[in-house]
Nucleic acid binder design. Structure first.
Length: 881
RNA sequence: GGGCCGUUAGCUCAGCGGUAGAGCGUCCGCCUUACACGCGGAAGGCCGCAGGUUCGAAACCUGCACGGCCCACCA
């Protein structure tokens, strides 16, 4: 016998073990094909709620398609996670007093390999605990052998086709991580800073000459190579072309005119530091200005900074400002809020830095990706993401793909030691770096054989971008690639739409000539209950692994899924797990009930929908059909939360509250044939419903299904069809029951006390109730109900109204006439305001003239029902006086 | 500076052209042999504001206010 309260733990452990031994979860049936690749989590530790949401959504879709008989493939995997993972490792090294440098590159990477393997195991386990039906034999990792081959092939191909180049550019440099970042890896953070106004006098003239510049970064002035003003700016026109003496150093710099300068901001004069500001870099290019690097890769001032060399950026700023003030150059200082670039991995301030980096040219790669959306070959759900996605692709700058870290795919480029210096800068103009997995045989320029490999690694997103092709074996022309590419849907959060989704589209289109997935399903971010992003520093992180033991994996899934409205963020509170946990318990007990009314040994032939069906049976079969159709529609439209709601409502509010309750009448009776019929419908509908539930709550659904399987036959299409009659009649039963229950509660009729009822109204109205009298008896605890066409109110009676009928309930000793009258009058006023609303339609000529017929019919019917109720209320009130 | 999203019951959110919904919370009854992780009943909403379209608007359009997010070179 099943325990009274559902305990998820043993069931989940059992199912996990079963799924494990059953091997691949992937369906192998014929039919449609449904392919999904997982967004591979970084191997930085354990999974969080965002992963749980992401996996749950994919799992619902995959299990649903599999249930429908499609062949499904869901590829699992993990991402090596470049900077993020290296940071985690460095942090853990710190604890034991080691550093990346003290270990050396080889040892460091070796340790990361070990750690990564361990982490992959943890993640696999967690995914299984969540119930994700992944095809484990396909488990991939962005740095495993097959994926590394793909990375090399992609690099080589892009290199050969001229998409990859190396050059000295101003890049986003994270001083803390010690590496360059691409533009999208820089986040903006509003910070309060200052605007310093500094006088730059004209060379050879007095301290009042020249002009005043405004800057937020005075320390960079040591690298200034010009001052720029707007060409139309009358204030400075006479100074253009003149030379200024740079304060603190006396170095002479020109005044140039450039349209990029905004005359209204600050003083309208901008100091130009090409080596440390992207805008200034552009100005520098336009005017042929030299670049002077005064800040180094370590965030300290370089030798070029003269007296400031060796100071940190911050210390240099303080000293520069102090010196300027001392020298009389500082005109004024204002507070100034502005957006500062910040590293997306460690949040430290980004330093624009001039350095040698590898880039991918994007314009030509983006074009097919743009077209794919325009032609509808790639669609994003919800569609409002398509616009920003396209905008981004249209204004794409080249992608900096080199990272100055050790963890990742080493750039497969070799330099001849003769033709290049140790920094990889060519000594001879004709020298060319050699692309290859190993060092080339000989240098094509000098003929020597002495090479060193580029020390940098590729951006982790480079290998991520290849994921949909690499998991199927590209660059080999594999069967998998032919069979499973393109995939059907990619489920992910909007925060990596550009970082990842767009790049997969671009490279997928480049290497396979078709989109890697036809649709991206964008879900929101799981936030804390106040709507803040979960982060370790805020201490508001909810760990799924803490939730599963407390509420069960099914409850966690269902909680997330029922909040997973397309594109919407989820404010997650632990409380949201209570409902789903109770839901699981409800299902458990409903099944326990059904099983308790079945013979201990299953019959030779499973139960089916047969025998004499009554209203409750026909009704629930119809409701089931409607629910399943709606589920199909909602899932087809990726409306996961709405789908979850659908099945929740059916199971609880329809199946348990009404059908199961009504089945009790027969099950507790003596009529064997009726019992058998009731059992058949109960067990078959329940089993079929569990099949619908399985994509959402696979553990409990499969467990219970297994228990029911020997009893339950499948429902055929002819078993389930919506019948208008049964819905109509059942509505009468439900409305009447509610009215009578309400009356009981309002008059404090003791729950144990049976009541007698006289129903008055026309025969057409009470016929469905008369036929199903036993329902009312059972549900509203009625001992006797009489039906008649007309009648006066019996004395000492309370009154209820429903379905155009008046119900008189004699309640000797419980009726206080005055109170009862007040109660009815309150109801009357409610009915009257209801009537007023309806009259807005039924008495409105415009409505009658223009509204569609069906709408008018609805209004008429509503009017009829409400005015009937009003009439009988009036009558009853009159009888009371 | 552009763009996107939100503003509905105490809270968290659905609904997106035809008489306002769910879950949680609150109040009143019930341990009615599937389930107290339950059952029954009830209270609670000028659907942000102002216009417009429509027979009819929480929903569609315009503007505004307030929140949030994304993109953008204002030093």
């Amino acid at each position: 016998m099943l325990p009274k309260v559902y305990d998820p733990k043993p069931v989940e452990d059992k199912r996990i073990a079963l799924w494990e031994s059953a091997g691949a979860c992937g369906g192998r049936k014929e039919g449609g094909r449904f392919v999904v690749v997982i967004p591979p989590p970084n191997v930085t530790g354990a999974l969080h709620l965002g992963h749980a949401l992401n996996l749950s959504v994919q799992d619902v879709l995959v299990r649903w398609r599999r249930f429908r008989g499609d062949r499904t493939v869901w590829v699992p995997g993990t991402d090596h996670g470049g900077i993020a993972t290296q940071n985690v490792m460095e942090k853990s090294l710190k604890a034991s007093g080691e550093t990346r440098m003290s270990l050396g590159r080889e040892e460091f990477v070796k340790r990361l390999r070990l750690w990564t393997e361990e982490c992959r195991g943890t993640i696999r386990k967690q995914m299984k605990r969540l119930g994700a039906a992944l095809d484990w034999e396909r488990d991939a990792f962005t740095m495993d052998e097959a994926r590394s081959k793909a990375v090399f092939a992609a690099f080589k191909s892009l290199w050969d086709d001229g998409f990859i180049y190396r050059g000295e550019r101003l890049v986003n440099w994270c001083v803390r991580c010690g590496t360059a970042l691409s533009d999208i890896e820089v986040e903006r953070e509003e910070r309060k800073g200052r605007l310093w106004h500094i006088r730059y006098p004209e060379a050879g003239k007095g301290p009042e000459s020249g002009l005043v510049v405004a800057t937020t970064r005075p320390e960079t002035m040591l690298g200034d190579t010009a001052v720029a003003v707007h060409p139309e700016d009358a204030r400075y026109r006479s100074l253009v072309g003149k030379r200024l003496a740079l304060p603190l150093s006396g170095r002479e710099i020109p005044v140039v005119a450039d349209a990029a300068v905004e005359p209204a901001f600050g003083t309208g004069a901008v100091k130009v530091t090409p080596a440390h500001d992207p805008d200034d870099f552009e100005i520098g290019v336009r005017h042929g200005l030299p670049s002077i690097k005064v800040i180094g890769a370590d965030g300290k001032m370089t030798a070029e900074a003269g007296a400031y060399a060796g100071l940190s950026r911050e210390a240099a700023r303080d000293k520069v400002v102090a010196d300027l003030e001392a020298g009389g150059f500082l005109v004024k200082t204002e507070d100034h809020r502005h957006a500062v670039g910040v590293c997306y991995r460690c949040a430290s301030t980004i330093e624009p830095l001039l350095s040698e980096q590898w880039f991918v040219r994007m314009e030509e790669l983006a074009r097919p990706a743009i077209e794919a959306v325009e032609k509808g070959e790639f669609r994003i759900s919800p569609a409002n993401w398509e616009k920003p996605y396209l905008e981004w692709l249209r204004h794409l700058k080249d992608w900096c793909v080199s990272r100055q870290i050790w963890w990742g795919h080493r750039i497969p480029v070799w330099y001849c030691r003769i033709c290049y210096d140790e920094r990889g800068v060519a000594r001879r103009p004709e020298a060319k770096p050699q692309v290859g997995l190993a060092a080339p045989e000989r240098c094509p320029v000098c003929g020597r054989k002495d090479f060193f490999q580029d020390p940098d690694v590729l951006d982790t997103w480079f290998s991520s971008a290849l994921w949909p092709v690499s998991v199927f074996g590209w660059p080999e022309e594999t069967m998998d690639l032919k069979a499973f590419y393109p995939t059907d849907v990619l489920v992910t959060g909007y925060e990596i739409l550009y970082l990842w989704v767009a790049r997969m589209q671009m490279l997928g289109l480049r290497f396979r000539k078709s989109v890697p997935f036809r649709r991206a399903l964008i879900h929101g971010i799981v936030r804390d209950k106040k709507g803040r992003k979960m982060s370790k520093s805020l201490g508001n992180v909810v760990d799924p692994l803490d939730m599963i033991p407390k509420y069960g994996a099914d409850a966690l899934r269902f909680s997330l899924l029922s909040q997973a409205h397309p594109g919407r963020d989820i404010p997650f509170a632990e409380d949201s797990l209570i409902g789903p946990r109770n839901f699981a318990n409800k299902i458990w007990n409903a099944t326990r009930f059904v099983l308790s009314h079945l013979p201990e040994t299953p019959p030779a032939k499973p139960y089916a929908v047969s025998g004499r069906l009554e209203l409750a049976d026909r009704w629930i079969l119809g409701e089931f059909a409607a629910m399943r159709r709606s589920l199909e529609e909602k899932l087809g439209a990726y409306e996961i939360a709405a789908a979850a709601d659908e099945i929740y409502g059916f199971l609880w509010d329809k199946f348990c509250d009404w059908h199961l309750e009504l089945s009790k009448i027969r099950l507790q009776g003596q009529d064997e044939a009726a019992k058998e019929a009731a059992r058949g419908v109960l067990v078959c509908v329940l089993a079929e419903t569990l099949r619908c539930l399985a994509p959402f709550m696979p553990f409990i659904a499969e467990e219970l299904l297994e228990a029911l399987a020997p009893y339950a036959g499948r429902l055929s299409e002819s078993d389930v069809h919506v019948s208008a009659d049964s819905i109509h009649d059942m509505t009468y039963v439900i409305k009447t029951t509610s009215a009578l229950r309400s009356l009981r509660a309002n008059l404090n009729v003791p729950p144990g006390r049976p009541i007698r009822v006289t129903a008055v109204g026309n025969g057409g109205a009470y016929e469905p109730l008369k036929v199903n009298e036993s329902y009312l008896r059972s549900l509203a605890k009625i001992e006797r109900i009489d039906f008649m066409a007309s009648g006066a109110k019996p004395p000492q009676s309370a009154t209820a109204h429903a379905c155009g009928l008046t119900f008189y309930v004699p309640l000797e000793g419980l009726i206080d006439v005055a109170k009862e009258k007040a109660r009815l009058e309150k109801e009357l006023s409610k009915v009257e305001s209801e009537l007023k609303k309806i009259a807005l339609k039924t008495e409105n000529h415009e409505f009658l003239a223009r509204a569609p017929e069906a709408e008018k019919a609805v209004a008429r019917a509503a009017h009829q029902a409400v005015s009937d109720k009003k009439q009988s209320l009036l009558r009853t009130i009159a009888e009371l006086s």
